[in-house]
Design a protein around this nucleic acid. Sequence first.
DNA 1: TCACACATGTAACACGTTACATGATTTG
DNA 2: CAAATCATGTAACGTGTTACATGTGTGA
Lengths: 187, 187
Amino acid sequence: MALRHAVLAALLEGEASGYQLAKRFDVSVANFWSATPQQLYRELERLERDGLLSGRVVEQRRRPNKRVFTLTADGREELHAFTARPARPTAMRDDLLVKLQAVDAGDQDAVRKALTVRLERSRGRLDLYDRLRDGLLDGRDEAAYLSEADRVGPYLTLMAGRAYEQENIRWSETVLGILDRRAAARR
Amino acid sequence: MALRHAVLAALLEGEASGYQLAKRFDVSVANFWSATPQQLYRELERLERDGLLSGRVVEQRRRPNKRVFTLTADGREELHAFTARPARPTAMRDDLLVKLQAVDAGDQDAVRKALTVRLERSRGRLDLYDRLRDGLLDGRDEAAYLSEADRVGPYLTLMAGRAYEQENIRWSETVLGILDRRAAARR
DNA sequence: TCACACATGTAACACGTTACATGATTTG
DNA sequence: CAAATCATGTAACGTGTTACATGTGTGA
């Protein structure tokens, strides 16, 4: 039941329509909670029905109208209560690692290819996170930011994403090296 | 559809019953694909029905009988084909990071508590992975192991788990430090 | 004797994914 | 003129979670 809370947490950044929320998830939230647009539309309806969000239609001239959603007081309370409930251990589910586990009985070249794709993706994400970080810091150093900012949550989750991608890059490079050496030794 | 392939990959280590497979997932597979016993029982039935596994009943004297499953030739082929299909980007879903994102509107102490629980868990997992690694290496160094072993997949995914938990430990410690300093500054 | 490990499942529900549908406007 | 972006959704299906049910054997 944490998609709800990921949505509520994302709306702390300010009101959004389903479409805008999907964008927001793509760039920053996906880092700790990924969701498809369809899930978001469904969840927004439920949250509104349950009184945790309120929606209103914004009429637009050269665009289709949109429905933007804002946290209600109940929504904020629910989010607060959620942070106090015990978190359950995270479930990892990584396609690529299943492939790597089976690499000795699988297609070596395809797995190496998949690793390079992952590596490139991680580099891209890291670049994005660095740019987002620069935007948050806005010239200040980290210590200054942390003592001035009234919200540190988004910064800390961003740093988690950065660390995760950096580790991913290091690990992928190591594994690619190992697989390449083994491939060379087999010829 | 990758639970199937995680099960097939886990059975590369040798035949297992549903119960044994659940244990195997807990200690090593959970690192890249977590699943509940219920999911495993369901999937084992499907895989047998589809001819990718064959099951046989092992009668036991002082224990309930068990059904152990083995990869069939079709199962190995399917696993090979899977390694060659494009992997999709991993979907992160982390409860704790949702809480951290909302920490400024949430219960600070509860979030710090949750972080220490996560930290302890990561330390435990890291210890486990170190012991599993020692078991695999069996006195050899990594280079010797990698050139001698006929399967490197399980070692490489284990190293992914190690790296992930190490990073988690570093990051949790940093974040706890930051939150503690902020809590102190607010008094 | 009490809790834990062995061993297998069912049922109901919640959540996530994929494909499709619609239609306007802006950018190349 | 085509492709991408804005904007919202439905339907069908596949996967994952939770609670429950059952019974034996082993070790503290």
